[in-house]
Simulated assay, not measured.
Amino acid sequence: MKRIYDWDASFSLRNYTAADLRALKGKQKLTQTTANSVEEAAAAADAGIDLIMGNAQNTKAAREGAPHLFFTAAIALPDFPTEADVLSAAFEAMKDGADSVYTARGPHVVELLAKEQIPVMCHLGLVPRRCGWHGGLRAIGRTADEAVELWKAFRRMEDAGAFSVEAEVIPAPVMEEISRRTSLVTMSLGSGSGGDVIYLFQNDICGEDTKRPRHARAFGNIHALQEQIRAERRSALSAFREAVHSGSFPARPETANIDDQALSEFMDRIARESGT
């Protein structure tokens, strides 16, 4: 563990720092997943995941669940439209314990954050919210011209001061060649094993949904458990209603009692007072 002070001047420990991740580039494969709650962060930590990433507003929860994991706070594209908004959100997330900040914005925003010495993760390849420029959801870099343009985009982000990149749905051979030539720590999401970090959303890993992207693999089946819970909830509620209607609930073990002498005295007294 590395000893650090966070942006709130609080002493803490981290499994990795930005400097560590740069030093490990090309030498050691790491894992990253999402964490947007205390439980998700704690599960990632308990499972030995190296890095976690979540929405900036969930930084405190992620930090509570995984106090020592390197956490990247994502500043959602549509929620912080101006540069001032982005900078404010970044400072707040870093104050809450984030170790880096993610943005899907262009080099000008990356540069804005990097000038404040915030480790910045950019986003290249398939950026889903901007997929209309590429004709929809598809891999980016499948032609030589497109792959060269992608490489140039990596270089622009390097020049802007980015520290790492979410590299999404890039052909694996292209990702491998770019990753070994760029100084950016590459987080491969659907881009093969050539990245420095293999990244997958926690809901996909755990099988929380029946539909997943082609690049994702479910290593669990939480969806089946959720369906079981859903069915069990309705079964229990129906059984409760039927028990009430049949008179079997509440039964003697589920009700408070009074001894016979006290009950007799009570009934005598209210009979006198009520005249009945």
Results as ranks from 00 to 15, higher is better:
73 A>F: 06
135 G>M: 08
77 L>G: 11
90 A>V: 08
60 K>Y: 06
150 L>P: 01
127 V>C: 08
62 A>P: 03
117 Q>T: 11
50 D>L: 02
39 E>V: 13
176 E>G: 02
56 A>I: 06
145 D>L: 09
109 V>Y: 00
58 N>W: 03
90 A>P: 05
135 G>H: 07
100 S>E: 07
42 A>H: 10
151 W>Y: 12
63 R>F: 07
94 M>F: 11
60 K>S: 14
157 M>L: 11
122 C>K: 03
152 K>W: 10
50 D>C: 05
134 H>M: 14
43 A>K: 13
82 T>Q: 09
47 A>P: 01
177 E>W: 08
55 N>A: 13
129 R>W: 15
94 M>R: 07
79 D>R: 14
157 M>I: 03
85 D>A: 07
64 E>K: 12
137 L>G: 06
128 P>R: 09
81 P>Y: 08
57 Q>C: 11
93 A>M: 08
80 F>R: 10
107 P>F: 08
107 P>Y: 08
46 D>N: 13
171 P>Q: 02
65 G>C: 05
38 V>S: 07
177 E>L: 12
57 Q>S: 13
85 D>V: 06
78 P>W: 09
126 L>T: 07
110 V>D: 01
61 A>S: 13
61 A>D: 12
170 I>C: 05
95 K>D: 15
113 L>T: 02
138 R>K: 13
166 E>C: 01
158 E>K: 01
107 P>W: 07
58 N>K: 10
77 L>Y: 15
39 E>S: 14
163 F>Y: 08
102 Y>P: 04
103 T>P: 05
163 F>D: 00
83 E>N: 14
124 L>S: 05
108 H>T: 15
54 G>A: 09
102 Y>N: 15
75 I>G: 04
128 P>V: 07
174 V>Q: 01
115 K>W: 02
33 T>G: 03
167 A>I: 02
136 G>I: 07
66 A>C: 07
98 A>Q: 12
49 I>C: 04
89 A>W: 04
67 P>S: 10
140 I>P: 00
162 A>S: 03
151 W>G: 15
85 D>N: 13
134 H>R: 15
81 P>K: 12
88 S>H: 15
130 R>C: 12
157 M>S: 06
53 M>W: 11
157 M>D: 08
159 D>C: 02
93 A>Y: 06
35 A>S: 11
64 E>I: 10
42 A>Q: 13
74 A>M: 12
109 V>Q: 00
74 A>Q: 11
170 I>Q: 00
47 A>T: 06
98 A>D: 11
86 V>W: 02
44 A>T: 00
36 N>H: 11
175 M>V: 00
40 E>F: 07
53 M>T: 12
132 G>S: 14
117 Q>R: 10
55 N>S: 12
52 I>H: 00
44 A>E: 01
97 G>M: 08
122 C>A: 11
136 G>R: 09
34 T>I: 05
124 L>Y: 03
38 V>G: 05
114 A>G: 01
52 I>M: 06
174 V>F: 01
119 P>M: 02
91 F>L: 15
45 A>D: 14
48 G>P: 01
143 T>Q: 04
33 T>L: 05
41 A>M: 03
38 V>R: 09
50 D>Q: 04
89 A>C: 11
164 S>Q: 05
156 R>L: 13
43 A>L: 14
114 A>Y: 02
92 E>D: 15
58 N>R: 09
41 A>K: 00
43 A>H: 09
119 P>E: 04
112 L>W: 02
142 R>N: 13
91 F>P: 01
83 E>Y: 14
130 R>T: 15
78 P>L: 08
165 V>K: 00
77 L>R: 14
